[in-house]
């Protein structure tokens, strides 16, 4: 069993014996992949949102200018 040193608090050192390096390496790989993919996906969504809003502003602005021109 992994042992928590301390008095039952969640933050502590988990003692995994002589193969601790392998266990921590596997969890580090998993956390890196999961957080990396999440961050990339969130960044891509925000970039796409910004691109769309810029495009909407540009095309909307052109339409407004055109409609303004016909009114004057």
């Amino acid at each position: 069993m992994g042992h928590i040193h301390g008095r039952g608090v969640i933050i502590g050192t988990v003692d995994l014996g002589g193969h601790a390096g392998f266990v921590w390496a596997a969890y580090a790989v998993a956390v890196t992949v999961l957080i990396g993919l999440l961050c990339l996906s969130l960044r891509e969504r925000s970039v796409r949102r910004r691109q769309l809003s810029e495009l909407e502003a540009a095309t909307g602005g052109r339409r407004r200018r055109r409609s303004g021109g016909t009114r004057s």
Partner: peptide, 30 residues
């Protein structure tokens, strides 16, 4: 659950790209 969450985020991105493409086509057509 992580897969579902990231899938939704990535699908939202893809839909934004499709809307941008459609808007670009309309703008070019105009």
């Amino acid at each position: 659950m992580y897969f579902l969450a990231v899938l939704i985020i990535r699908m939202q991105s893809a839909m934004l790209v499709r809307r941008s493409r459609a808007l670009g086509r309309v703008a070019r057509g105009t």
